[in-house]
Amino acid sequence: MNITSIQHVHPAWRAALWMAGALLSFSAMAVGGRELAAELSTFQILFFRSLIGLPLVGLVVMRYGGPQQLRTRRLPLHLLRNLAHFGGQYGWFYGLAFISLAEVFAIEFTVPLWTALLAVVVLGERLTPIRLLAVILGIAGTFIILRPGSGMIHPAALAVLLAAFGYATAHTLTRKLVSTETPLAILFYMTLIQLPLGLIPALTDWTLPSPARWPWVIVVGVSALTAHYCMARALRLADATVVVPLDFLRLPLIALIGALFYGETVTWSLALGSILILSGIATNLWGEQRRQE
């Protein structure tokens, strides 16, 4: 299929193709993080992620618009956003080393629900009954997955839950930045600020990756950028109510990868909790669609 024929495909289907790229990228980053955790600390993984990402973003900036895209008067807000995002990244990669891939992704899916709550506090948005129901379903699903009354909760699961809140904070601050900053500027300052955030603590226990791990270093660095790029392209072609539900496919996809390559199983609590969390997100999307009609 050539470029001309692709342009005649319905935008929703083209968005689905871009989302397929995003799903594969997120899954590749998760597997890469799991493989690197055998040798590297979480801080080192985050450092190499930014080290590879920064020149790639720089090349894109030079190709599309030049350095003028990077002008900003909101550097403190960029810094605050990336502190939250770095914390989210740390918890996410830390969780990959200790709990199942599906459990990491399931807990991560609470991000939209925490974002809805933060939007009320930070952006002054209204907490509608539909949004409240979505948050309640998400919290219920999270409790079922973590099962706090069944014994010791794995610290990695709590780390991923805190990571979800960190991501939600970063998303909320991004919504404040997009009014004045270009997407490339947000991506550039993300890699630039997070590079020393990962390097400084990594130096205290530095380990050079073995030759067998370097391909996974590249996979993590590249897939982290392609995931966000593919999702951005999908959102340009179709409404969020079309694109976001496609992201739900990440969960069964990563569960399949975990089962095939790591022998992981899906427990009843993970399955039920995931259904409740995804139901909450779907309810919120349905409510937003009804409001716009």
Rank of each mutant, 00 (worst) to 15 (best):
V111Y: 03
I277A: 12
L187I: 15
R14G: 00
A106K: 07
E125P: 00
T180W: 03
V243A: 01
F47G: 11
L187E: 11
F143N: 04
G33D: 12
L246A: 00
L177Q: 09
V9W: 02
Y262H: 12
E125I: 00
T207H: 14
R73G: 12
L123W: 03
E39S: 14
R73M: 02
Q69A: 09
L272S: 13
L195S: 04
Q194F: 01
W92I: 08
L132D: 00
F43I: 04
G58C: 07
L75H: 08
L113P: 02
G124Y: 10
H228Y: 14
R291Y: 00
W286P: 03
M231G: 05
R175L: 07
L137T: 11
G87V: 06
A227D: 08
L256V: 14
V178L: 02
M29N: 13
T174F: 08
F43V: 03
G124S: 08
S279Q: 02
L162V: 09
M29S: 14
T226V: 14
I144P: 01
A30F: 02
A168T: 00
L70C: 06
W92E: 07
F43S: 15
L51Q: 10
R175N: 05
H154K: 06
G166N: 02
R49Y: 09
Q292F: 01
E181N: 08
R126C: 01
R126K: 10
D239N: 11
G258Q: 10
A84V: 11
M1H: 14
G53D: 14
P67Y: 09
W206G: 06
L177E: 06
Y189D: 11
T207I: 14
M190V: 00
G166F: 01
S5W: 06
P215E: 08
T110A: 02
F86Y: 15
L256W: 07
S50V: 11
I130G: 03
A16W: 04
T115R: 00
T142W: 03
C230N: 08
A106P: 04
I136W: 06
A134W: 00
L80K: 01
I6K: 04
P76Y: 11
V222G: 09
Y229G: 12
S210P: 01
G95E: 07
W18E: 00
F47K: 08
G280D: 13
I107K: 02
T42C: 09
P252V: 05
T4H: 15
I275Y: 08
L59V: 13
L208W: 15
Q69R: 13
A102G: 14
A232R: 05
G32Q: 09
V242E: 09
A102H: 10
L276Q: 12
S25C: 14
P209V: 04
N284Q: 12
P55G: 08
V244A: 14
G198T: 02
P252I: 06
I281Y: 09
A163S: 15
H78C: 07
I52C: 13
A22D: 14
L199F: 15
I144D: 01
R236A: 15
L59A: 13
T267R: 06
A271I: 13
P76Q: 10
T180G: 02
W13A: 13
F188I: 06
T42G: 11
G65M: 10
T182C: 02
Q89G: 13
E125F: 00
H171Y: 12
G149D: 13
L162E: 02
W114E: 11
A202S: 15
L96Q: 10
G58Q: 05
L133C: 12
R34W: 11
P148G: 11
